[in-house]
Computed example of a mutant assay.
Amino acid sequence: MLDKHQTGIVFNIQKFSVHDGEGIRTLVFLKGCPLHCPWCSNPESQRREPERAYNPTRCLSAEVCGRCARACPTGAVRVVNGLICFDRSMCTGCNACVRACPTGAQTVYGESVSVDHILKRVEEDDVFYARSGGGLTLSGGEALAQPDFALALLREAKARRIHATIETCGHYPTDVLEEACRLLDALIFDVKCLDSERHKASTGVGNELILRNLHFVFEHFPDLPVLVRTPVIPGFNDTEEDILSIREMLPKRSTVRYEALTYHRMGQPKYGYLGRPYPLEGVKADEAFMTRLNAMLKAYQQ
């Protein structure tokens, strides 16, 4: 199969991003992830298959619309006391309600798309990439959890001279990462914690493979720009020792940068749309600690 015809499951294409690589970028979010972080801001990305979701804030109400309930053949979507209700246990995934909904309140996270379809969307903004040094960033989920699709995207992007970056958790076979690195212009690599037992307790996997893959990149691709990032999560890795130990592990070279990310809850509403509880309800970032931490990191880099 030609790379441009390869298909995969994508749940979002976000244009004009300025925080996920150099310049102005188009982010392509692939579904599926080997980690299950309770702080994940994209819960719709964790499972590989498409998922039904209901966003009541976009609903026109049963009184004004009600098309989804009338379209549903199983009664999974119905009107109860004047309100639209969605019973996941009765849903067969026919998506009749999604097609009937005029506002996107009833939706599906994830659809099968081709490499060519995605890159045509990306190329719509090539003038902005040329001016800003931007391009394509693959994210997720974990983009390399769909290795055939992600690598086909990278090969075709390279053929079209599109600057390509991946945001990755690093947990997959090293040969997949090696092939990706040969096609990438930059890499964004998450390191969450150096304590493997604590890492496994929170994410579902240990960190041995992740760290092994990171050091593989440092050894075999020394010229590849790498941004290592750590989300600082209250109660998990929010100590100076946790963060500075990661920073000290990294080689001191111009191609390697480090960033500590402040915990946020912007993805919390999506847990409700998916019918899941938010695991970190009530948890808030310590802004004062983050200010001190970033000052220490800045001093470390000087």
Rank of each mutant, 00 (worst) to 15 (best):
D3H: 13
H5L: 13
T7S: 11
I9F: 02
F11N: 03
I13K: 13
I13L: 10
V18I: 15
E22C: 13
L27I: 14
C33W: 06
C33N: 06
C33G: 04
C33H: 00
L35Y: 12
L35C: 01
C37H: 03
C37K: 07
S41R: 09
S41K: 11
N42K: 06
S45V: 05
Q46N: 01
P50M: 07
E51P: 03
Y54P: 03
T57E: 14
C59L: 08
C59M: 09
A62I: 09
A62P: 03
E63W: 13
E63K: 14
R67K: 15
C68W: 12
R70Q: 15
R70A: 14
R70P: 00
A71G: 05
C72K: 09
C72R: 09
G75D: 07
R78V: 08
V79G: 05
L83N: 07
C85P: 02
C85K: 15
D87G: 06
S89N: 12
C91F: 07
C91K: 05
T92I: 15
C94V: 01
N95L: 12
R99L: 10
A100Y: 04
C101L: 11
P102K: 07
T103K: 07
G104V: 05
V108C: 00
G110Q: 09
V115K: 06
H117W: 12
I118L: 13
E123V: 01
E124P: 00
D125A: 04
D126Y: 13
D126S: 12
F128A: 00
S132F: 10
S132L: 05
G133A: 04
G135H: 06
L138V: 01
A143R: 04
A145S: 14
R155L: 08
R155T: 04
E156I: 06
A157C: 05
A159I: 01
R160N: 07
I162S: 10
C169I: 01
G170M: 10
Y172A: 05
D175C: 06
L177W: 04
E178M: 08
E178L: 04
E179D: 12
A180K: 03
A180T: 09
A180S: 06
C181H: 13
L183K: 06
L183T: 08
D185C: 08
L187G: 01
I188A: 03
I188Y: 05
K192M: 08
E197D: 14
E208D: 14
L211K: 04
R212S: 13
H215S: 13
H215L: 10
H215E: 15
F216G: 06
H220C: 04
H220K: 15
H220F: 08
H220G: 01
P222T: 02
P225K: 10
P231K: 04
I233F: 01
G235E: 03
I243V: 15
S245D: 13
I246R: 08
P251A: 11
K252E: 14
R253P: 03
S254V: 13
T255H: 10
V256D: 11
R257Q: 13
R257M: 05
E259Q: 15
A260I: 11
A260D: 08
H264I: 07
M266W: 14
G267V: 05
K270G: 07
K270T: 03
Y271P: 06
Y271Q: 05
Y273R: 07
G275R: 09
R276I: 00
P277R: 11
K284P: 00
E287N: 07
F289C: 08
T291M: 09
N294T: 06
